[in-house]
Amino acid sequence: MGHLLIFHEPVVAAPNPDLAILNAFVPTESPPGDPVTYRLTFNNNTAAPVNITSLNHTLPSSPGNLVFDAAATTNTCGSTVNITTGSAGGSTGSFAITGGTIPVGAPGCIIEIPVRGFSAGNHNDTIPAGALFTDAGENQDPTAATLQVDSSSPATLNKSFAPNTIPGDGRSIVTIRINNPNEYDLTGTTATPTLTDDLPSSPFQLRLFPAFGDAMKNL
C-alpha cells in the first residue's frame, strides 16, 4: 500500500502595500540635550482595522547616541510600548511595540516618544521594510527621518574688580559674568552646576567682605 505525504509550507507574512509606517522628528533640529518628539505614524489603507503583532527598533548611534525618555507621551494605537532609554555615553535608545490596532485611514494611529541627542550632526534613523508585523502583513517600504543636533560652544567666564586699585583695607566689588556664545540656552547637566573661585593670596590674601561672604560661598 502506498502512502501519500502532505507537507504544509510555513506561513510567512507578506509585504502589504496598504500598510505603512512613517517615522519623524518634530522638530527636525535641536540644541544638544533638548527633547524633541519621535513620532511613529501607522497608515492603514486596507478595508478593515489591522492588529499589530510587533515592531522593534533601535535608534542610530552615529554621530552619537539618541536617548529616549522613559515613556510614550502619545499612544492612539493602544499598543504596549517597552522603551530602553539608553544613555549618551552608553547604548542608544530602542523600543519594542506589541499589540494594539491600526484603524482604517492615514493616519490610522500615532505613537510619540520624547528623544534627545547630545552629539552635533545629522542623526539618520531608518526603519526597514518588514519591521512592522501585523495580522495583515508587513510594511512594504522603509521609512527614514533625520534629526540635526546643533553644535555647541562652551560657556565662558569673565571676572573683573571695580575699582581695580584700592588702598589697604579698601573694598572692591568683584563681578563674575558667565557668557553663553550659543544661539540657545545652555541647560547644564543632571548634576547641580558649581563654580569655584579662589581669591589670590599674593602679595596679600584678599578676603570677602562679611556682608557678601555667605552669598559668594554658595556660587
Rank of each mutant, 00 (worst) to 15 (best):
N218V: 10
S79H: 08
I83S: 07
Q140D: 14
G99R: 02
L195V: 11
D34N: 05
I97H: 02
I97V: 10
P167W: 06
I113D: 04
T84H: 07
G117W: 02
V11A: 08
G170P: 12
A211L: 14
F133G: 14
L5W: 00
P35K: 03
I21W: 06
T53E: 12
V67G: 12
D69M: 04
A145C: 09
S61E: 13
R39S: 11
D141T: 14
T28E: 13
T76Q: 10
D135H: 11
L195N: 14
G90H: 10
L219Y: 13
P60S: 06
G90T: 09
D135I: 07
I52E: 00
F7D: 04
S30W: 06
I52Q: 01
H123C: 04
F209G: 04
F209T: 14
G2Q: 07
T101Y: 00
Q205Y: 09
T196Y: 01
S119F: 09
D169M: 07
P60I: 04
G90C: 02
I6K: 13
A88Q: 13
T73S: 15
P35C: 04
S153W: 02
G170F: 04
P27F: 08
L40Q: 07
V36K: 04
N139Q: 07
L4W: 00
T92W: 05
G90W: 09
T80Y: 01
G78A: 01
F118A: 02
G78W: 00
F133E: 15
P35D: 11
D18P: 01
R116W: 00
V36P: 03
T73F: 11
D185Y: 11
S172A: 15
T80I: 05
